[in-house]
Design a protein around this nucleic acid. Structure first.
Lengths: 160, 160
DNA sequence: TATTGTTATACTCTATAACTATA
DNA sequence: TATAGTTATAGAGTATAACAATA
C-alpha cells in the first residue's frame, strides 16, 4: 500500500492533477486549440483573434465591431487590433455607420471572403476528425455538458 | 427564410462559431480556468504554473524538475521559473540529486505544504460545484470524451 | 454622462535557442 | 554526444485604464 485511501465521504487531502477536471479541460483545450492553429496560424497566417473576427463576419455579415466582440467572445481591444490587422491585409473594410457615427461597420472584402472560403471547410474537417470516434449520443452529451459547465463556471466567477 | 439550409450531406459554406466545438471548448476552458484562478491567483498569489508545480509535489513527493514538467504538462522553462518563484517565497527547496548531480530534487517546505493544504480543498470544492448538476452518467461520459478528444487532437497535430 | 472604438502600458505566456554542468 | 536545468530574447495575449469622438 503506497497511497493512503481516504475514508468514504472524506475529502482527500491531495488532488491528482490527472483527475482534476479543470486541469484536464485546460490541457485538452490547449491541444485542440493547437491542432486548429496549425490551420489558421501556420497555413494562413492568422491569429486566433483574426480567425474569429473573420468567422464572425462570414456568419453575421456586415456588423459593428462591438457585435463581433460579443459574437466571438473577444474584448474590444482584441477586436480592434485584429480588425486593424485584417484591414492592412485587405481582408475587410471599415465604414462609419451613418446612423451612429461612433460605430464602425465591418465588411469582408472579396479577398477576405476567399480566404475564409478556403479555411472554413478545412476547419470543419478538423472538427469532424476530432469528433469522429464519438457516438451520436456522446456528441449530444458533450454539447449539453459544455453548456452546463459554461453557465456554472460563469456563476462561480460571479460569486468569487 | 433568412439562412440558406445546406443540402443534406453537403458541407456548409460557413461555420457558426457557437456550434464549432473547438471554439466552444476554448471559451469553456477559459472560463473554468478563470474560476479556478480566482482561487490560486487572486487569493493565494500563485500563477497557474506555480499552482501546478505545488500540486505535483503534493501528489508525487520529492521529485526532479523534469518529472514535475511531465506530471503537470508544463515545459521545462515554465517549471524552472515557477520553481524559482516558489523557492523565493519559501514554499519549496532544491537539492542536488547525489545520484545524478544534474538533477535538482524538489521538496515542499512546511510553508508550501500548509499553503497547498489550504488551497486543495477549496479547489476540489470548486470542481465539485462545477460538476454538481451533471448526472453520474454524464460525468463518466465527460471523462471518456475528454480522453478520446485529447488523443485525437494530439494525433491531428502530428499529421499537421 | 454614457458608449464606441483606439491607444498606451505593463504583465504574463509561449517558443526558440543558446548556454552550463554534468553524464 | 546527450541530458537537466538556467537564462535570454522576442512574440503574442491579456488587463487596466486613459483617451477621442459621438451620442
Amino acid at each position: 500500500m503506497t497511497k493512503a485511501v481516504p475514508k468514504r465521504g472524506a475529502a482527500p487531502r491531495t488532488l491528482e492533477l490527472q483527475r482534476f477536471m479543470p486541469y484536464r479541460l485546460a490541457v485538452l483545450a490547449e491541444e485542440v486549440s493547437r491542432s486548429l492553429a496549425q490551420l489558421y496560424a501556420d497555413r494562413f497566417d492568422l491569429t486566433r483573434q483574426e480567425w474569429r473576427v473573420l468567422a464572425g463576419l462570414a456568419d453575421m455579415g456586415e456588423i459593428p465591431a462591438t457585435d463581433v466582440a460579443e459574437y466571438a467572445t473577444l474584448d474590444k481591444m482584441s477586436v480592434s487590433r485584429a480588425v486593424a490587422s485584417l484591414e492592412e491585409k485587405g481582408h475587410l473594410t471599415r465604414e462609419e455607420d451613418p446612423g451612429d457615427r461612433r460605430n464602425k461597420i465591418l465588411r469582408m472584402t472579396p479577398s477576405g471572403a476567399a480566404l475564409y472560403a478556403k479555411i472554413a471547410p478545412l476547419a470543419l474537417a478538423r472538427e469532424e476528425y476530432l469528433l469522429e470516434p464519438l457516438s451520436p449520443a456522446d456528441r449530444a452529451a458533450f454539447e449539453r455538458i459544455m453548456s452546463t459547465l459554461l453557465a456554472r463556471a460563469r456563476n462561480l466567477q460571479r460569486r468569487g
